[in-house]
Design a protein around this nucleic acid. Structure first.
Length: 112
RNA sequence: UGAGUUGGCCGGGCGGCCGCGUUGACCUGCGGGUCACCGAGGAAGGUCCGGGCUCCGAAGGACGAGGUGGUGGGUAACACCCACCCGGGGUGACCCGCGGGAAAGUGCCACAGAAAACAGACCGCCCGUGCAAGCGGGUAAGGGUGAAACGGUGGUGUAAGAGACCACCAGCGUUGAUGGUGACAUCGACGGCUCGGUAAACCCCACCUGGAGCAAGACCAGACAGCGUGCGUUUGAGGGCGGUCCGUCCGAGCGCGCGGGUAGGUCGCUUGAGGGUGUCGGCAACGGCACCCCUAGAUGGAUGGUCGCCAACCAAUGGCCCGCAAGGGCCCUGGAGACAGAACCCGGCCUACAGGCCAACUCAUCCC
């Protein structure tokens, strides 16, 4: 589970990263990455919309993603901000499929 | 043993690795760190009712609007719960009922049918007339339609018939006695002979309801910048958070346009109509008393992620064992494992739910 100081919470920050950052799409996930701002902290946020499922499945997807991102925090350029958006198919896939999709998406968005 | 009815309960367990949130203790370089405890549901859901709590000035009146609808009780309250009554269903346990008023008035009643509400008459029957077709009159017994057709059966009566009259029955109204707190039940007396349904149609009757909601509300910190215009200050603008009017109170600012700023933190926030056990009252819902217990508080939103093992469930092939047989047990393999995530808190209702457990009762069959 991702610890509290590394979570993206403000709504304006979300829209800022999604609009300005680099984007890498996929069938399960879409990632948005914005390079270092003024503050040096690396932040990660998640967007799981209502079309993914009901409250229970949305929470499961969010918890899995938070858990995976905790182990991959060091991979990101320090001070950058990341937003992970879940697509509706992410509700049905297995944990290993989600891991694979996240790694591929992160590699692509950082290579840009 | 089989079929069923009702009520209640559970809704996997253990372990490894890696994590999150509140609270407490300790450490700290004030950023945080370490350890310990605790950490989702029976529906947390839908937001359909009822309350607590908070604010709206004291929460007034009339009309309107909305809700409830057998009786008695329970409760903080209810549209909920319990018991009973009435009507309907079932052999039965038991289940179902939006269960006030249709004789205050208005509206509606598809199709079929002659006719659908107040009287009338398609076929028929009878009388008169006519050669006949038919015409005039009487009648509502018989026919057919429909969910529903102006009481039913038998008789008297008649040209044919009819509550026109009589007996019994059903139903209605008035009334008496008995039982019951009451809804109502049982047994009579009298009356005129009979009156359709629909009030989740308007309506009438009785009772109930002020409004908004924890983004309520309170406090702290912080930011900015005003300009134009209209109305108004006892001749009263604008308010008093659901619609209108009245009454009453506050009242010096208020509305519109352009421009600018902020949406950070603390409290509310979890001890409550709270649970558990025992006992007493009550048919029960529930209540009284005594003792014990403290059990989630997030705010982009914690309560988890992943892997393994074991129970229990299902399926099929194979193997072994028991049995005359129907079948049963064990092992290997595979599969399924539901509905669903607190957000101020309670009491209900409704809806969703893989699978499993328990109790009471009913009917049928067999044995003693």
């Amino acid at each position: 589970m991702l610890s509290a100081p590394n979570r993206l919470t403000r709504s304006d920050d979300f829209t800022h990263v999604v609009r300005r950052g680099r984007r890498a799409g996929g069938p399960l996930l879409v990632t948005h990455l914005l390079d270092a701002g003024d503050d040096a902290k690396t932040l990660v946020g998640f967007v799981v919309a209502k079309n993914v499922g009901n409250a229970v499945t949305r929470n499961v997807v969010k918890r899995r993603l938070r858990h995976l991102m905790r182990e991959r925090l060091g991979m990101l350029p320090s001070g950058s901000t990341l937003v992970v958006r879940a697509q509706p198919k992410a509700a049905q896939c297995s944990f290993s499929e989600l891991t694979e999709a996240l790694d591929r998406s992160l590699r692509r968005v950082m290579a840009q």
